[in-house]
Design a protein around this nucleic acid. Structure first.
Lengths: 147, 147
DNA sequence: TTTGCTGCAAATAGTTTGCAGAGAC
DNA sequence: GTCTCTGCAAACTATTTGCAGCAAA
């Protein structure tokens, strides 16, 4: 079974476990999130589903993302400019590398941040539950472009 | 000279260098940013200045923050829920520890992320310009409260 | 005197919500 | 048949912008 199939199963299973109804719209959203090609935005997801469900409402996308997020099956990558992106492939905190020109998001393989988390906990006495690490820069594609 | 006086001088000097007019409103905003007590939000800044300038407009706060940000003299800590916070004391990227209950923001002393930055650059071939590292958790005050 | 700044109000954009009908179970 | 979900439109909220008057240089 491929990775995205496993993720799709995990999401739909969580939905069933919590007695949420399985609607075609919900399945379509779960399917796109399970692939999360390019860390899609709500707009991206809506646009893709509209091909098969022309009446699909943006509100439905938002509501289902909130739901799936509450089940811990999608990671929200929020940006202050209101262009949030989603990752249903790796729904746990992990670093991102973001191109400030084309908005591409890449997941680098980095040694874990666990040491740093412990350091923060012992210094601040906070109970750390979560984190977010983003690097911003220019990708090779955008660097090689003129201007 | 105290730290916040130095920061206040740095900000006003940058304004003068770039030939921006020195208005009372601008100075008041620079003063609050130079202290940045508790990483204030736009709303916080506006409320504080309103005591001395009752006609101060929110738009003016926004415009001046955009300006000072463009001069590199304040760090914007954006949140997807649209409650951005500002740090004019340390206007360069640095880690934050954020209490998810009371929204307190603390600056921990951490070893630099330079090693990680190099690792990311060599792996992704991005030119990294910037980063953001936030830890989310519960502060000691909120932990000791009932419920 | 010139030019940029401020205050006000309206516009913007992403997201959320109320409601009535549709559909999953 | 019940109860949640969906689509639509309106509401919401942080932020930005147009404009006319004001004030720094």
């Amino acid at each position: 079974m491929s990775d995205h199939q496993k993720r799709f199963e995990a999401i739909t299973q969580k939905l069933r476990d919590h007695h949420h109804k399985i609607t075609p719209q919900r399945l379509a959203i779960a399917k796109i999130l399970s692939k999360s090609i390019g860390h899609p935005s709500v707009e991206d997801i809506h646009a893709e589903i509209k091909i098969d469900f022309p009446t699909m409402s943006l509100a439905t996308v938002y509501r289902n993302i909130v739901l799936i997020k509450s089940l811990g099956e999608v990671l929200e990558i929020g940006f202050p400019d209101g262009r949030n992106r989603y990752d249903g492939k790796r729904p746990y905190p992990h670093p991102h590398v973001i191109c400030i020109k084309c908005k591409k998001i890449v997941d680098p393989d980095l040694d874990s941040l666990d040491d740093m988390k412990s350091e923060v906990e012992s210094e601040t006495h906070f109970k750390i539950l979560n984190h977010r690490l983003d690097f911003f820069g220019i990708c090779t594609d955008c660097m090689s472009e003129k201007e």
